[in-house]
């Protein structure tokens, strides 16, 4: 599943703040949190690990087949919104 712009303005149900942490923590914690969430809920992740946004998250979410949306919110800072679909 590729990126979906429509997620940009959706209110998140859960948030995860992993600012300042490097791999594999952002992906691993997001994965764990997604597992606990209900289908249809949206998770918002704050991270400043550029490599995670460029590589780890897209590849993980493509494998899980969840739609997501990345917003650049500052220098090296990103917000990722992920919708759990299954």
């Amino acid at each position: 599943m590729a990126e979906e712009k429509s997620l940009e303005n959706v209110k998140p149900d859960e948030t995860l703040d992993v600012l300042g942490e490097t791999c594999p923590i952002p992906e691993a914690m997001a994965h764990k949190k997604l597992n606990k969430m209900k289908v249809g809920q949206v998770l918002e992740v704050y991270t400043d690990h550029a490599a995670a946004v460029e590589n780890s998250f897209p590849s993980m979410l493509n494998k899980l087949n969840y739609p997501y949306c990345v917003t650049k919110t500052g220098p090296g800072e990103f917000t990722i919104k992920i919708k759990k679909t299954s």
Binding site: V53, V70, F78
Partner: peptide, 8 residues
């Protein structure tokens, strides 16, 4: 601006 992960 809304950035898009450049790859994949």
């Amino acid at each position: 601006e809304s950035g898009v992960s450049p790859h994949y």
